[in-house]
Design a binder for these strands. Structure first.
Lengths: 380, 380
DNA sequence: ATGAAAGCGCTAACAC
DNA sequence: GTGTTAGCGCTTTCAT
């Protein structure tokens, strides 16, 4: 009785037809090798590997031993092909080089891997073409679900994912459909805390550098700022609202605009920390002291924020929370029996972290002037 | 004649056996749907999609039209299964949150995608367990090759990849085997330029903060520093060589040690930019001025370096070069007919970028003292 | 409880 | 030049 009668395994086309485009590696150990060695059928190996309870313990032992001996690793592609599930999660970010995202990616990856998923990452770089290709790739790789963590995306781009009913997770806002879940960031609270902090220190002329306003989240942050100011009876003149790009370069340009104003605002809030870093840089170039001349407040609390000079006061939006919610929401969409399968919204808290880039406006408290250079608000 | 006679497509197991663990999406469009619609065989569709020249143009047109109409995307898993190639490249980094790596990842991804590959990223976080799981995952996902960009790794960890003859790329050093290629970074040149720059400014007491010395690359950088100093007849006392961790925290701790010395070194070179950022922070906390009191030089030239206060003088090792070489070397290992298939080494240049964190040692040129605060070496 | 066999979507050998 | 078909490695019936 010839086993393997139908297999052409190891008989590469290359052997017959001249130079192959690809150098072939030795064929990996497959389920058949394990089955042969353990003297069971491939079905039994499959059942043992997948922990099906009905397998005879003695056979299971033989299978595991054989697996050990031949160094078998199940081929994920084959599994995916037959099961219809790839156990891959797509993660779409704007730009991996924006320091906020690596932290998110890291957390997301840790959680996903711990739960048996692989992560396919892609960055849009805010380019439509790239985003389209990204989504096509995710479709072709057959990811089980996609987290769109770009804080805003052109909706027709993700149309294909929506059509094919992929479980999707968005930040802030997304279409209201059964497979779509949303992480709602509480911008209002964090930004209110920031504004109140500055107002309490005595600032009245507070400027805000927004993100790119085609992003919903950037609009949401700006609106939260306006609202928080209004609550305190403070008006925001149009020239105190400058559009940035969520990059350091954007922060520099925006701050240069703000320094033309008369009077120059005594405090600047930024739509994200990277912008704030640009602002610090611009102020350094123009020999303004932070926080003595101008207080700066960021948003995100990236790891780097605490190492800035001076360490940056900022509104924290925890990547850990965001990543955990994203993975949980995706699984809720993927696994029909997930405990939170019915949930459509996850809320993400924010809070102010006071460091040394914010203090009293210059001259408001002469007695403390001496502490301004390094003192900041830490004693406040 | 019933087509599709053997297919159980769309008849999910779930329909028969109660609650499924997984919610199934509607079956994706497959090659058969295209074939039916274009009234050709699946083989013809496959040939058309893969651009085989012998296909009748009229049929090809029908195929492409059908593809358009039904929205067909080839299933990558099936392709990988039958072809033995996944068109995925593994990319192993140390920590994605270290700002050097996102830039590398971005470049690598751009290049890989442009050349038709997907990227599977993983970070070791310097943990053996994580690294093992990472490598197992890469094996299971059947990547076509792996770039190990960690600047040093425990060699027994990658043993499994070596055994199975995966094309591999290392930085600096790796086993001399047919499937292994190495990117040689020219530490000597960049670091020599850095040392000569500082020496030319008048520094004699130059300290060096190394990376974690279990990393080959960290050792290589330190040795390059020693050698460059020796070339100038400068001795490096043992206490001028402090081990860091390639993190900001490590830079802070190391700088604190250096400030205990008497006399304190007038210049500090760092094994990477992140360490240098930590150093700037430590000096800020102890009210030392950079560069007036102490000059600081980094290594890597991460994007952030130019935005530091003051902008960081550093040795550039271009991620673009590194990523391009890595992708090219990987393809050379994967594709037998690649023009550079025989090449085993790629060399990566480095060069000094002078910004404002380095200047004359205090007091050495009194006439210039007034420019020290902001002047740095830019006029030099 | 176990094995034989169908078949996931695709490529490539082979026949015409 | 085109169609038919085996089979990539695996899971899951179905029959025993």
């Amino acid at each position: 009785m010839e086993k393997r009668k139908k297999r052409r395994r190891n008989v590469t086309a290359a052997a017959a037809s001249g130079a192959p485009a690809t150098r072939r590696r030795p064929a990996a150990v497959s389920i058949r090798d394990v089955a042969e060695r353990a003297r069971v059928s491939i079905a039994t190996v499959s059942r043992a590997v997948n922990g099906i309870a009905t397998v005879n313990p003695e056979l299971a032992r033989r299978v595991w031993q054989a697996i050990e001996e031949v160094g078998y690793l199940p081929n994920t592609q084959a599994r995916a092909l037959v099961s219809g599930r790839s156990r891959m999660l797509g993660l779409i970010v704007s730009e991996i080089t924006n320091p906020f995202f690596p932290e998110l990616v890291q957390e997301f990856e840790n959680l996903a891997v711990a739960q048996g998923y692989e992560v396919l990452i892609g960055s849009t770089s805010y380019e439509t073409l790239r985003t389209e290709s990204l989504i096509r790739r995710m479709l072709q790789r057959n990811v089980d679900g996609v987290a769109v963590m770009t804080f805003g995306i052109e909706e027709d781009l993700i149309q294909k994912l929506v059509e094919r009913e992929f479980p999707l997770v968005f930040v802030d806002a997304g279409p209201d459909l059964p497979n779509i879940r949303v992480l709602k960031v509480d911008y209002a609270e964090g930004i209110r805390q920031g504004v109140q902090h500055l107002a309490a220190l005595g600032h009245r002329h507070i400027a805000f550098i927004t993100g790119p306003l085609r992003l919903r989240s950037a609009v949401a942050r700006r609106d939260a700022f306006r609202k928080s100011m209004a609550e305190l009876g403070l008006v925001v003149p149009a020239d105190h609202l400058v559009e940035g790009t969520h990059t350091m370069e954007g922060g520099i340009v925006a701050m240069e605009k703000l320094s033309q104003l008369d009077p120059v605002p005594t405090a600047v809030m930024c739509s994200n920390d990277v912008t704030a870093i640009g602002v610090l840089h611009a102020l350094y170039r123009t020999t303004h002291e932070v926080p003595a001349d101008i207080s700066v407040v960021g948003f995100d609390d990236i790891h780097l924020a605490q190492f800035m000079l001076p360490p940056l006061t900022t509104v924290q939006m925890s990547c850990k929370d965001l990543a955990a919610a994203a993975v949980e929401a995706l699984r809720a969409g993927i696994e029909a029996d997930h405990p939170k399968a019915a949930r459509k919204e996850w809320s993400i808290p924010t809070r102010l972290v006071v460091r040394q880039s914010s203090t009293f406006p210059r001259g408001s408290l002469p007695a403390l002037a001496g502490t301004a250079r390094r003192g900041g608000a830490k004693n406040f």
